[in-house]
Design a protein around this nucleic acid. Structure first.
Length: 423
RNA sequence: GGAGACGUCGCAUAGUCCGGUCUAGUGCGCCACCCUGCUAAGGUGGUAACGGGGCAACCCGUUCGAGGGUUCGAAUCCCUCCGUCUCCGCCA
């Protein structure tokens, strides 16, 4: 939810943001109309209600003679109050529904759609496998050779896009996630293991129930949603609270399973564990002041790059175009690692600045020096996911099917330096 | 799953049986000021969020776990739901 005052004072700014996203700019004007209707009907209701309350007091103190006449009047007034209230409630609901449709106001993201990102920087050097004299295998072939990834049995038991991580595969994931938690701890984040089932209002509050709601698993019997990221649970953590940011941002590192339906991605990344229905992730989540949000966004990006350096992957950072932003994000940076088998980049991390959008929807506020309350900003960013295994196996593979363990990860694998294929 | 108790403005609690004087009282905490040579103590006042109108002091409305209902009027009566606690059952 965006700031209503911004929409009133600078409607053109919001219209332009909607255009950049490829969304309807006229929604802004429909909201302004709905706001006017809401306010006039609210004034009518409140006036009638005030009258009703004061007459109620007269009834209480009236003598037995006066009472019948007063009661007749108040009875009639009660009808009017009820009607006015129904109008006001309806106008309020219409207004809320429209306001919730407006996506966050874009801040600095390049215009365009999915392919219109800007490459911020490229880091590290992709290996030249031709010069090394062998064809790089894909992560699944390597993983199967190591007895680390089993997609066949995953499909047998749970269906397509499910998998088992076995032996070194399981250890590799734990190592990565533990390294991510350590990275977060060093940076002052509080590690949190979150719920992965959340209520509708929390899912809606984070902005995931809009256009892409078919991406989300819903348990109808219990009306609960399976989270696609611990961001959801961490955003809900301080919902309906007034938090204290006077000592700096509140920073959490969520560890959770993540569930995604992957609707509409049929036939895409079907091989291996690149695009799966369930995976694990360590996710950073910060609550900051509005003023500090952009700087915090850079801090989260820096931590993501620290993790990528730890596992020694070549990658690039992209500034996502406005049309490819989630509805909550004002700006988003992705880190994409090089994928030798496919000669392309693969998204490993994503960090979004949601400014006050989620905080307004979830009612997370802070108290300013003057004693007033105002919405905080929220940001999130990936520190490690199961998918990282893909890039690690492929980039550190050797001609004989073994994989060199990146130095930064060795302490998390008991000093193991190389992963050897099993016969 | 069954039975019971409870949910009030930061915390604690009064009010609910018997609807109107509740504009929700009190204590603690917190803030400001006053007093006492320091400390401690004491005194006075203030102390929720959200929304609407002036856009400043102020006025009005909503909110007593949530949502419905009864009533001229609901913290108070009725219904449904949620949560917490205690006991029982079941599972681990």
């Amino acid at each position: 939810m965006i700031d209503l005052n911004l929409l009133r004072d600078e409607p053109e700014l919001v219209r332009e943001s909607q255009r950049l996203r490829g969304e309807d700019p006229e929604l802004v004007d429909r909201i302004i109309d709905a706001d006017a209707r809401r306010r006039s009907s609210l004034a009518a209701f409140e006036g009638a209600r005030a009258e009703q309350k004061s007459m109620g007091k007269q009834v209480a103190t009236a003598s037995a003679d006066e009472r019948p006449a007063l009661l007749a009047k108040t009875k009639e007034l009660a009808e009017r109050v009820k009607a006015f209230q129904a109008d006001a409630t309806q106008a309020g609901n219409e207004f809320d529904e429209l306001l919730r449709q407006i996506q966050n106001v874009v801040e600095g993201a390049p215009p365009g759609g999915e392919d219109d990102y800007i490459v911020v920087r490229e880091v590290g050097q992709a290996r030249d496998f031709t010069a090394e004299g062998f064809q790089p295998a894909d992560h699944l072939a390597i993983g199967e050779g190591l007895r680390a990834i089993d997609t066949a049995r995953g499909a047998k038991v749970s269906g397509s896009r499910f998998y088992y991580l076995t032996g070194i595969g399981a250890r590799l994931e734990l190592a990565l996630l533990n390294a991510a938690v350590d990275c977060a701890l060093r940076a002052g984040f509080t590690p949190v293991i979150t719920p992965t089932l959340v209520k509708p209002e929390v899912m809606a509050g984070t902005g995931f129930l809009g256009r892409h709601s078919d991406e989300i698993y819903h348990l109808g019997t219990d009306d609960l949603y399976l989270v696609g990221t611990s961001e959801v649970a961490l955003a809900g953590y301080h919902s309906d609270e007034i938090i204290d940011l006077s000592d700096g941002p509140l920073r959490y590192a969520g560890w959770s399973a993540c569930y995604r339906r992957e609707a509409g991605s049929h036939g895409k990344d079907v091989r291996g564990i690149i695009r799966v229905h369930q995976f694990h992730k360590v996710e950073m989540f910060s609550y900051t002041t509005v003023e500090d949000a952009a700087a915090e966004h850079q801090r989260l990006l820096a931590l993501e790059e620290e993790m990528l350096a730890l596992v020694d992957l070549p990658y690039r950072v992209i500034d996502t175009a406005a049309g490819d932003l989630g509805s909550s994000a004002a700006r988003k940076f992705d880190c994409e690692a090089w994928l030798p088998s496919q000669q392309r980049y693969l998204e490993l991390t994503s960090t979004s600045n949601c400014t006050t959008y989620q905080a307004r929807r979830l009612s997370v506020r802070e108290r300013t020096e003057s004693g007033a309350t105002r919405a905080v900003a929220t940001l999130n960013g990936t520190l490690a996911t199961t998918r990282w295994i893909v890039a690690i196996l492929e980039n550190h593979q050797q001609a004989d099917g073994s994989v060199t363990v990146p130095e930064g990860l060795r302490p998390y694998l008991g000093g193991l330096e190389v992963l050897i294929p099993k016969a």
